[in-house]
């Protein structure tokens, strides 16, 4: 029994340490400016939403939010499509150059993002896609596709070959087998891909900073930088902006908690 209490205590301490920054940010974002002199761990006394309203309207966060949402949702959907189609071909079809392609995907897993960021910027610019949603989406997909192809490939490898053969005998084309036989049983891989790609896309700063220079194209992650000048810092703006950006993530996490944990372990196998 003593062990149990020690365990709970340790877990409690960890939980507090993890939650503290979030809670303090939430406190700050809800405090009237006059209360900012109080220490950070003081809860707000007169609750106010003025900072949220300011950030959402004058701060341009409504626009940033829409930008972020468009990019993340499209990223997630398109990623599911291309990664699963590529993996399907790798697992169930025979074609010349398959080995080479497989090698390229594995290579894609090993190259760090920072190493290719500059050429990626030049490619996006040469296509005239700077400051467009499309440019960021292409870049996101290119950088992460290997990971998800790998994930779908390992998932499809577990699908019995006889299922594919039975469908061929039933007269299905490869695309019909993909759509009606294989994808319906790949839900865990689909959910994991959707969640991880959405979150990466939602939280990414580097690519968006490089590819989106015009204010109206900015995403939330970039928008947060507005509150941090070289000399000044808009603490309440930064806090409420952070909370706005965190809300969808927290909601997603609550809804998909179980798939999320599974996805994390799936990623760990990589």
């Amino acid at each position: 029994m003593a062990n149990r209490w020690v365990l709970l205590f340790v877990l409690g301490v960890i939980a507090v340490l993890m939650a503290a920054p979030l809670v303090l940010t939430l406190f700050t974002s809800l405090k009237p400016t006059t209360e900012l002199v109080n220490p950070a761990w003081y809860p707000p006394i007169d609750l106010t939403f003025e900072h949220y309203i300011r950030v959402w309207t004058e701060g341009g966060f409504s626009r940033y939010f829409v930008n972020t949402l468009i990019i993340s949702v499209v990223d997630a959907i398109v990623m599911i499509l291309i990664a699963s189609l590529a993996a399907y071909a790798m697992v169930f079809m025979q074609f010349p150059g398959k080995m080479l392609l497989q090698l390229l995907f594995v290579l894609g897993l090993m190259i760090p993002v920072t190493a290719v960021v500059l050429p990626l910027f030049q490619i996006v610019r040469s296509f005239g896609l700077l400051n467009t949603h499309l440019g960021v989406i292409f870049a996101d997909l290119a950088l992460a596709v290997s990971v998800f192809v790998f994930m779908f490939t390992s998932y499809f490898a577990g699908v019995p070959k006889a299922l594919h053969e039975a469908a061929r005998i039933d007269g299905a084309t490869e695309f019909q087998i993909y759509r009606r036989v294989v994808m319906p049983i790949a839900t865990p891989a689909v959910v994991t891909t959707a969640l991880l790609e959405f979150l990466w896309s939602w939280n990414d700063l580097l690519l968006r900073l490089l590819l989106m220079t015009r204010d109206e194209m900015r995403t939330l992650s970039v928008g947060l930088l507005n509150f941090q000048g070289t000399m000044t810092r808009d603490v309440t703006g930064l806090s409420s902006g952070t909370v706005i950006m965190a809300i969808p993530v927290v909601l997603l996490f609550l809804v998909f908690q179980r798939s999320f944990v599974r996805g994390m372990t799936a990623g760990a196998v990589k």
Binding site: L163, E165, A166, I169, I185
Partner: peptide, 20 residues
Amino acid sequence: LSPKQRDIAMVFQSYALYPQ
């Protein structure tokens, strides 16, 4: 010919039913 064009049907040892 593809399996479909041959107009054959097959029963597999593992049955290979579509689970969903």
